[in-house]
């Protein structure tokens, strides 16, 4: 009798613990959307989420900036890279500019398709330090839309930007990094997302922004 009672108790304990195991396995995956949500809420990973989602309101951002803070200047560095599979030349025309917050400036990037096929590519911006992302406003940017490049085509692409004067004083240097992705590839990845569990990971941010 003692043995049988013990078996019942053991089975009960095992079942309860298995529930914890399954829940923790789910929690591991839940960390992905939680991470995206936290990064967005605190604006901390330097990604321009609104641009990626296609609801970036450049006009409204710039309308809020009324004066130029000539009392200080901020160094803006540019860097450009391409995704590993993209045979592409991509670089900023100038590496560094010094700007006063509130002042509208233009920078140019050069890109050339080195392949013998037409490529539709998308540039994804990211900024360091991550906390500065919300103070860096783009008025016009080649990253707003997909760029089509014929075989061997080269182009200079403009970026018009203004640094918000509310940028915290301790930030004196910003690094803006662009990465060019082949959208054909990106599209394939996106298609998979829609039908897979990563939908949560990648698009949860999108849904609550709309």
């Amino acid at each position: 009798m003692q043995g049988q009672q013990q078996n019942i108790a053991n089975n009960k304990t095992t079942r309860r613990l298995l529930v914890v195991v399954v829940a923790m396995f789910g929690f591991g995956f839940a960390l992905a959307p939680m991470y995206s949500a936290l990064c967005k809420a605190f604006g901390i990973n330097g990604r321009f989420v609104e641009i990626q989602e296609g609801n970036y309101d450049a006009k409204n951002k710039v309308a809020q900036i009324t004066k130029v803070d000539e009392g200080r200047s901020v160094t803006v560095q540019f860097t450009a890279s391409r995704n590993q599979d993209l045979n592409w030349e991509f670089r900023p025309m100038e590496n560094t500019v010094s700007v006063h917050p509130g002042e509208i400036r233009t920078a140019k990037f050069y890109a050339r398709n080195l392949t013998d096929r037409t490529i539709v590519a998308q540039a994804v911006p990211s900024i360091v330090p991550g906390q500065a992302a919300k103070y860096f406003n783009k008025i016009e940017c080649f990253c707003f839309t997909q760029q089509t490049f014929k075989p061997g085509e080269a182009r200079e692409m403009p970026l018009r930007f203004v640094v918000d004067p509310n940028l915290p004083n301790k930030i004196t240097m910003l690094t803006l990094a662009y990465t060019f992705f082949d959208t054909h590839q990106g599209q394939a990845a996106n298609d998979v997302h829609d039908s897979s569990i990563t939908k949560l990971a990648v698009h949860s941010v999108t849904t609550d922004a709309h």
Binding site: A32, Q52, N83, V124, T179, F181, Q185, G186, A188, A189, N190, V192, H193, S196, I197, T198, A201, V202, H203
Partner: peptide, 10 residues
């Protein structure tokens, strides 16, 4: 083809 850790896919 998922992109949990791949910036190209978000």
């Amino acid at each position: 083809g998922t992109s949990f850790f791949n910036a190209a896919g978000g």
